[in-house]
Design a protein around this nucleic acid. Sequence first.
DNA 1: GATGACATGTAATCAGTTACATGATTAG
DNA 2: CTAATCATGTAACTGATTACATGTCATC
Lengths: 181, 181
Amino acid sequence: MSLRHALLGSLADQPRTGYALLKHFEQSLAYAWHASHSQIYPELARLERAGLVKHTLVQQTARPDKKRYRITAAGRAAMRSWLASPIDASVARDEFSLRVFSMWLSDRRTVRAMLDVELARHEALLARHEKVEVAARQFLPSRARGRDMHFANYATLRRGVGYERHVVDWLRWLIAELAKG
Amino acid sequence: MSLRHALLGSLADQPRTGYALLKHFEQSLAYAWHASHSQIYPELARLERAGLVKHTLVQQTARPDKKRYRITAAGRAAMRSWLASPIDASVARDEFSLRVFSMWLSDRRTVRAMLDVELARHEALLARHEKVEVAARQFLPSRARGRDMHFANYATLRRGVGYERHVVDWLRWLIAELAKG
DNA sequence: GATGACATGTAATCAGTTACATGATTAG
DNA sequence: CTAATCATGTAACTGATTACATGTCATC
């Protein structure tokens, strides 16, 4: 049920097309949730049938026509009740951790290569997230942060940066430990 | 395809029944992967058909009979080739981050309650993980860590501890920021 | 007498990925 | 001429959850 709330939340910010939502998932929302177009389009149709969003057709000449979705009052209410509902503990499902857990079954060089690739990946992510975080600070209000979308966005970003920093630290520690022999 | 490797990895340590694997997922493996019995039993049957594990029946009187699975040579080879295969970048799918991203749609008190619950949850997890980590240190070898299962287990645990520490720090920062008004 | 651990399975459903399908415009 | 962006959909399949199903023994 998270996908529908990710969509509703983005539409609460501003009306968007399915395609724009897809791009939004690749940008700001990337730290929190992922979805592909084959999930987004059918879900928007379901949300419309449930009365939580409605669309208007936007005719274009140079580009294909598009459907602009906007959230309804019922949609906003659904978001508020979701935010007030208790949240279940999440379960871990991380392939990389699983590999580290099983690394003793493989040889030194293979493990080292795997760790190096992962470290490079997370160092790159960290650098990128840090840049975006600095940029996001520009939009921060000095007060009323609880009701401000830009602050919420910034807070999610901080989580992303903190997470990548922890992963990078842990990988460096692990590589150093294994290098000891 | 990760579930099958989680099972194979656990069976590479020692032969286990489906039920013992389930318990193992709830204990040591909990930091890396989750699976329920309704996934484990059919997957073991598939692994057996693929020749990666085989089972022997263990008859019991007081308890129901059980099937003890052990990994085959082909199973060990499958693990090594999995560990050597390139790993895809993982996508984020975290309901709590999504909620924080949307928190501006809700009121102060609701958000505060959500953050407090989550902080308490992660503080408890951190405390528990830290205890397990200290206990796991006992089994650490001084050398040959790359091929040692206990070290791999310890490394996964360190990741869990580091992760919870980062989440707790971030939640405390967020609560403090929102308290500023 | 109820709950929880032991022990193993199947069926229905839901969520998510990959592939199939189409087609115009713009930039290199 | 080739790839990328814009734009929207469906179908097949895989992975995971929830519910259905059964039965003993030990402990409170």
